[in-house]
Design a protein around this nucleic acid. Structure first.
Length: 474
DNA sequence: ATGTGC
């Protein structure tokens, strides 16, 4: 056990948390909750963890609904940290007969997308400024008011990327030039779940379901917080065979996209956390953890359909962010290919062993599945492959995890010099100067120990490392 | 997380 962590865990034990360490994993459980499973977490050495995150984890495992259903297991990723719906980010929740809207929250189908291109760093940097100007136009000023047919919008919300493709006869919104729809179609196989779940337009904001043309779809926008679009270099390849099969080679340029379902996810997430509160049985006190499950069979399936609707939107949002980038590359560099490596959600509820698995900021890591773990700004990102570790609930971390809050950096008397924030040498393009500070390297924990711990535990293996060249932040 | 909201 680590001394600092040891002190924290002793303090938690005094306030009623049962804490154990089996030489590999830490586990926590609310005192007197022997009926519920302990929540397990893998922690790298010397990584700061907040007590609040442990408390949230223990409460999640202790969750019950008077009408039935059960929590089968709770596991947290090594980068877990407190979340504001009462569920820690990095929580993986396996349930049967109940689901928890707050275990996903509002950032539904937040996820990662990775492309590679056979273009040298030198060739790219020679046209860096022109590239930045065009991408700023697309990402920061471009696509918000671009119209989308309501048939395409409905097909998207119902069936995801595949449905949208069938209804998209012309070029996708806002994209300069023609998109290669047959290429997009072929790439659907490299999107987790084929880029579509069974959704329904009625769960989307009303502006989407109105007859006629959707003028304000908000697609192809990065979003805030830790979301970004980054140009990278494939720095090192560890697993040559697998990298080759995935089209990844050392020295290539890479494009990594971290974004989600924007306003649609917020719309669904807020509505369903409220609905769970209203559906809580009368006469039973609301749990003070603030974590509210749904147990009614019909409400469960309605929630999952609503979540799927937002998820479908997020899949297309990432696809279009990539498409704008790919088309800008073609404009500047000629006929350069930038094939999709993989697109994977890390904030989604999916079926699992006859129940449900809610990953809140955790990347699926089933056997042979591509796992994309982004570093924070300025840091290395990782392309990994899942090992299907059952004890980890087939899940890996989705980043390094926040070390300091946005507030503590934006105010709180922080040292705002680039050197103190770790921003020296970081090329970050943003319209809001405060983003650079809030998301600066100093705001995050180091990624390497988080990745190493998961490799040692047999959760993932390294395929390639990617180093940042240029980051876009909204 | 949220074309954040104070």
């Amino acid at each position: 056990m680590q001394p600092k962590l040891n002190r924290l865990l002793r303090a938690l034990a005094r306030e009623g948390l049962e804490v154990a360490y089996d030489g590999r994993l830490y586990s926590v459980r609310l005192h007197g909750n022997a009926h519920s499973p302990p929540a397990e977490v893998l922690l790298p050495p010397d990584l700061p963890v907040e007590g609040k995150a442990f408390r949230q984890l223990a409460h999640l495992a202790a969750l019950r609904h008077p009408a039935g259903g059960e929590v089968l297991r709770v596991r947290a990723t090594p980068d877990f940290h407190p979340g504001d719906s009462g569920v820690a980010i990095g929580s993986v929740l396996h349930t049967r007969g109940l689901v928890v809207p707050g275990a996903i929250g509002t950032d539904i189908n937040c996820g990662m997308r990775l492309h590679v291109a056979d273009l040298s760093v030198e060739a790219f940097q020679a046209k860096r400024d022109a590239f930045v100007e065009r991408m700023k136009g697309h990402y920061f000023f471009g696509t918000r008011d671009v119209a989308m047919g309501s048939r395409a919008a409905e097909a998207l919300l119902r069936d995801g990327v595949q449905g949208w493709l069938l209804e998209t006869l012309e070029r996708p919104l806002g994209c300069a030039g023609q998109a290669d729809l047959s290429q997009l179609d072929a790439e659907v196989a490299r999107i987790h779940l084929g880029g579509g779940l069974k959704g329904h337009p009625s769960w989307a904001p009303e502006s989407f379901t109105r007859e006629g043309v959707v003028r304000d779809a908000g697609l192809a926008t990065i979003g805030g917080g830790n979301h970004f679009v980054e140009v990278q270099r494939v720095e090192a390849v560890e697993d040559r065979g697998r990298a080759w099969r995935w089209g990844v080679r050392e020295g290539q340029l890479a494009f990594m996209i971290h974004s989600g379902s924007r306003d649609v996810g917020k719309h669904v997430g807020v509505a369903w956390q409220e609905r769970a509160r209203k559906a809580w049985p009368q006469g039973t006190p609301l749990p003070d953890s603030g974590i509210l499950p749904l147990a009614d069979e019909r409400l469960v399936s309605e929630y999952l359909e609503a979540e799927a609707t937002a998820a479908n939107y997020a899949f297309l949002n990432r696809l279009l962010l990539a498409e704008l980038l790919r088309q800008t590359l073609r404009e500047l560099f000629g006929d350069v290919e930038a094939p999709l490596v993989y697109d994977v959600p890390h904030n989604l509820t999916l079926p699992h062993e006859g129940g449900w698995l809610a990953r809140k900021g955790a990347c699926p890591a089933g056997v042979e599945q591509p796992v994309i773990i982004p570093g924070s700004m300025g840091a290395t990102s990782f392309l990994m492959v899942g090992c299907g570790d059952a004890r980890a609930l087939e899940s890996a971390s989705h980043g390094a995890g926040r070390a300091r809050s946005r507030f503590s950096l934006s105010r709180g008397g922080a040292d705002h010099r680039d050197s103190a924030l770790g921003l020296t040498g970081v090329d970050c393009v943003t319209l809001r100067a405060e983003r650079r500070v809030e998301e600066a390297p100093a705001a995050y924990k180091p990624i390497r120990p988080v990745v190493d711990a998961q490799v040692e535990a047999g959760i993932v293996r390294e395929v390639a490392r990617l180093s940042p060249l240029l980051t876009f932040k909204a």
